[in-house]
Design a protein around this nucleic acid. Structure first.
Lengths: 242, 242
DNA sequence: CAGTGGTCTAGACCACGGG
DNA sequence: CCGTGGTCTAGACCACTGG
């Protein structure tokens, strides 16, 4: 029934998720774990790992002694900032057609907060990449990414900078992000922001993200600032009990 | 070595975490999983579950074929908004002494966005609870919580509303939160906010959270609005790859 | 190549829910 | 009481890292 790659757990998870989205289970209820295991020809542990992932995504919930149930409300959440999402995907989720515009690329002396966050000396320079994300041709997200040039080990074409930053890093820097540490910062709208994001005059406050990308070893690699128009997009986050 | 309750995984996790924080492992490296299993007298699966939790918290990272290593940087993160945190704890994490002030409690006609979010008719009323959280006596968080009174099944003293909302709900409403759906919204500072949070005149933008609390079955239970001063607290979030 | 973490299995027993 | 999900075990094999 299932192959060895990708992992059985992932295949079972995708299979169950599709079944749920297609409403192929009655009573908002999934069969018992033992039955699923027998039907799909995998062990109960594999089923349980897949169910645990679906529960984390909010698609199902389990009650000891009662069963596994579908959470219809949880299926509706569009964006989950607690995961790293591509801004293009985020825009698409809200029904718009996404485009990316590379505004500016320049090598700049490092600013002191960036130097501190990336554990670099104040003498170095960083590659500053400014991008604009548009939803149906309306600008919605403006990002400034600071990349230490010494991390870039492969030659690249300028348009490669249009890639999501973590793909660019993986492809040209022999680095891989493990997580972002994101700080949520309110900002007053400046003239630059108003022009770049084409804001109307009654939009005077924005949410911005100040993000540091860390690699697997826990070392900071890049810093990014993002500015969001929240009239077309929502910044949503699912928070769980520890 | 370990008892049956709480779960072995939790005990192993706490034990390893303490060992890590006490710097009792050399070379930023943990022993192999098989060795840990033998030493602690549990199965390798139990060890692995505990390690997976520590990895999610950013305390360690694992490299297939190489080993399990300590992430010194991950230990420093103070707040993790992707988890539900008590505002008192958050204030304490930043080294301040927290207090809660109950500003106002009143039964109000429901506003239409709240009615929609909680799936209630527009004819009903809600209990509106306004609280102020102070750090060393400086106001830093202002919250407005909307609780449908029909959920409150137990009699309570007014001061019980000082409890964190999810504790109040668990204790007096026979409900239990499974997760919050949080939307991050920028706000311009109003006179009310400026007075309540004692903001200076150069603070004109704030971050606010519009949160809906869901129970295990995925039904919305309460709505809360929170307003943060971000000069004393940071709103930090760890974002991971899906 | 040896040693590590990653995946999966089969089976046992426990704890809770509902009839 | 039975059936459910929750926890734990022992063991197998795979995939990757590094000397």
């Amino acid at each position: 029934m299932f192959k060895r790659h990708p992992s059985l757990v992932k295949q079972v998870k995708d299979y169950l998720k599709q079944h749920i989205l297609d409403s192929r289970f009655d009573d908002n209820r999934l069969p018992p774990e033992t039955e699923l295991a027998a039907d799909l020809g995998v062990s109960r542990n594999t089923i349980r790992d897949a169910l645990t992932q679906l529960e984390t995504e909010g698609i199902i919930f389990r009650k000891q002694g009662a069963g596994t149930f579908i959470n219809q409300a949880g299926i509706l959440v569009k964006t989950r900032l607690e995961e790293i999402v591509l801004y293009q995907d985020m825009i698409e989720q809200y029904g718009y057609s996404p485009t990316v515009k590379l505004l500016n690329v320049s090598e700049q002396p490092i600013s002191s907060p960036v130097a501190e966050n990336l554990h670099l000396g104040s003498e170095t320079t960083v590659l500053l990449v400014e991008k604009l994300f548009l939803a149906d041709n309306t600008p919605v997200i403006y990002t400034c990414t600071h990349i230490p040039p010494q991390y870039i080990t492969q030659p690249y074409q300028p348009h490669a900078l249009k890639l999501p930053i973590y793909q660019f890093i993986a492809q040209y820097c022999d680095q891989e992000f493990a997580y972002y540490l994101t700080e949520i910062v309110p900002v007053m709208v400046t003239e630059l922001l108003r022009t770049t994001l084409q804001l109307s005059f009654n939009q005077n406050a924005l949410v911005s993200f100040s993000e540091i990308g860390y690699n697997q070893e826990g070392s900071p690699v890049v810093q990014a600032y993002s500015y969001f128009r929240n009239d077309m997009l929502k910044l949503q986050l699912v928070r769980r009990l520890p």
